[in-house]
Amino acid sequence: MFRTLTLLTCCALLTGCFGPSVVRGPGADEAALSTKLDRVDLEGALDSWYQEFDSSKFAMSIDSADRKIAILSIDNDTSEHIDSGLRNLIESFETKLVNDGVFAVVSNDTLAADAILRERKRSLGDDVDSATIAALGKEFGIHYFVHGRIGETTEKLGDRKRVQYYLFLKVTEVATTRRVFQSEVPITKQITD
């Protein structure tokens, strides 16, 4: 009884003294609130992938800014609802490619607006079939496309949950269906109660 009354009094005092706290700015971005991918994770992954891509033999060999590239999709093979995060990643990636000026970028939105291609993308597995590749070349004049997937390994021990993500991004040449660049970016998130 005494404990209950003390508890109620303390709760009443505490709720009266403290309201919700709001944090603004870069400091607020640093804290990880869940095992889902947040902006810091995606920016880190993108920077890491792009550095590797930019210094690759393939990127160095591109001598004309007329070469068209598109980011097709990143398949979510995880147990987290991160599709909106992946859409952001595609757009950030496009922004980097546009600003870099090495390629002419065909927007993912343009591809998404094409009903037939959208239907093809819906049934894509880890690989892109030859009919889709042909359509990318013929209908959109695309020379290269980026296609990827994100997978995970989840482990739980007591109150601790760790999710290890693996982001794989591959660049394919449309004319030859040859994979010209591929890399993997690991991201780890952990939550402890």
Binding site: N76, T78, S79, E80, H81, D83, T154
Partner: peptide, 12 residues
Amino acid sequence: GGAEIEARRMRN
């Protein structure tokens, strides 16, 4: 896609 993720969550 959403159902697929819930399926994995259930399995995990």
